[in-house]
Write a protein that binds this DNA or RNA. Sequence first.
DNA 1: GTGAAAGCGCTAACAC
DNA 2: GTGTTAGCGCTTTCAC
Lengths: 337, 337
Amino acid sequence: MARVTIEKVAERAGVSVATVSRALRGLPNVSPKTRDRVVSVAAMLNYRPDPNAARLAAGRTRTVAVGVVAIPIWYTGQVVSGIEAVLTNQGYDLTLLLIADDFARSRALGDVGGGVSKRADGAIIVDLVPTAPERSLLAEQRVPWVMVGADCPTIDSVVIDNVEGAASAARHLLDLGHRSIGLIAGGPAAFPSSGPPQRRAGFLRALDNAGVRFDPAMERVGDFSALGGYEAMQSLLGRRPRPTAIFAMSDEMAMGAMRACHEAGLDVPGDVSIVGFDDVDWAFTVGLTTVRQDATELGAIAARLMIERLEGIACERRLITVPTQLVERSSTAPPVG
Amino acid sequence: MARVTIEKVAERAGVSVATVSRALRGLPNVSPKTRDRVVSVAAMLNYRPDPNAARLAAGRTRTVAVGVVAIPIWYTGQVVSGIEAVLTNQGYDLTLLLIADDFARSRALGDVGGGVSKRADGAIIVDLVPTAPERSLLAEQRVPWVMVGADCPTIDSVVIDNVEGAASAARHLLDLGHRSIGLIAGGPAAFPSSGPPQRRAGFLRALDNAGVRFDPAMERVGDFSALGGYEAMQSLLGRRPRPTAIFAMSDEMAMGAMRACHEAGLDVPGDVSIVGFDDVDWAFTVGLTTVRQDATELGAIAARLMIERLEGIACERRLITVPTQLVERSSTAPPVG
DNA sequence: GTGAAAGCGCTAACAC
DNA sequence: GTGTTAGCGCTTTCAC
């Protein structure tokens, strides 16, 4: 297992290291015979170029950094999975950055620790909205950025239409005849993201369009977890009159809300209708009506945008919007009475 | 934003590059005054060492590769999250490898593409059982390996006691009085892992210890997904007499099984008791009795073992077993009749 | 089409 | 304590 370097390959193939480098990377200006010989010698010697040396010499890392706020969330896992598939397929490495606190945040977005720019050719940031100062830091680092889940001005972004997604959930409830609809919003995550306010806006607008007044007392904030949704719902159920329907900004919160209803002796959808958001893999097991988003696709698109930037294909800033879709199951029904 | 190198810092601080390198890395043999001066000059110049140059020169990457079979799974997300926290905290980068097929597998475990050894100082592999030939490949690469979820001979491993975990689930069901217990096993995932056979063994042994015969016709295989559990349960419900209780090897499968029961007009736990495995965050919303495992902790321990190896602290091979715990909720009850 | 040589920016002996 | 000097293993002009 002695280190086999490019030099040894060159020696054995009877050519220079430069030729080996060209041949192995498929560059032009190498005669077919030479290339074949080099390739077979390299294979025989089991030669593997050292990525670090290549990086240092070429100034490119063939690595993309991916910054996420929380990995053990269905949504994030899907996005990362989508990114990874595309990246790996194109021969890029993926460095994972978990952005859990302010320090990690500035490490990812700013330049603490060398910033992303020296350890990756570009960065994909999931669900984080850069502040203005952060945006100028990003611009300073000479690498491309792609945002997932946040429409960031001047930066390539891939998002879902949160406004329309939430509105479709609200319209569904309104169409069923609900007029007293509660909202379990998301927040405060580690950092504010744009999903919750947009979903809130879409929800409110749909109610408004239908001439239905939204009672601010009908809103609670969960933390995108089942427990958060559960507690939010308990609180909401304390109100009189209680809502006949609930829109929760995530399926996990919706499931927590369902639980709270059951514990209170209320039937879903008999007494309370519930709509979630995401369509997680197990949503069907509780018959949850929800707004589906294709998180894997979100990640895949982001990775493709990144690669286009890295290969110098793209030029102007792009904003890609992936559609959502209402999935009707059995957690919603017309209100009684 | 011109590249500021160690040389510029040295120049401005009036010392040699070697001294800058030492000072900034906190090595001994630097006078306090010199160190201070260097540090402040570096800060002023906004100097960030280039990791690739450092890697090439030092032969260490300060990166550990993490190979997982599937990221958008609750368990995997938790593990990765636990690993990341520790690694980042210790100043290591984390390269994520998704092992989805044979090619990816040999890329991660073998030496395709330079193997892990040149791009990382070590690798943590989650839920994959290396074959004998793979093990020798691992040994050839001069980097430490840590396995999570698989007790791999000669390699540091951190696991849960699957046998006992499954046995505790079975005992719970037996204690309640169940004698006709179905099994929804896991597999075939992308690759065979050791969890399913161990859980199966623990389950069978508990039945055996209680003098209860297990009817092989009572076993179905899901794929660790809600849908897989759902279909497995539907099939199981076709049998007469049908089981009065079910042990599913994951919570998602358990939830799918619950769904199948409900669709068949059966009450849980009235007609069928169900036990899962994992204790996912939302398990409480459906009152699922389950075997809890602390996946985040699993990852954190693995990362710590890895760092000890990298810093040269550890010597002999370690096997860490993290306990599981039965969480009784409302999906289990004594059988009727 | 191929080779020679100059780095990429840092670390690690080794001298002093 | 500090400086000097080799490299680390590649890529990339620039000649030929």
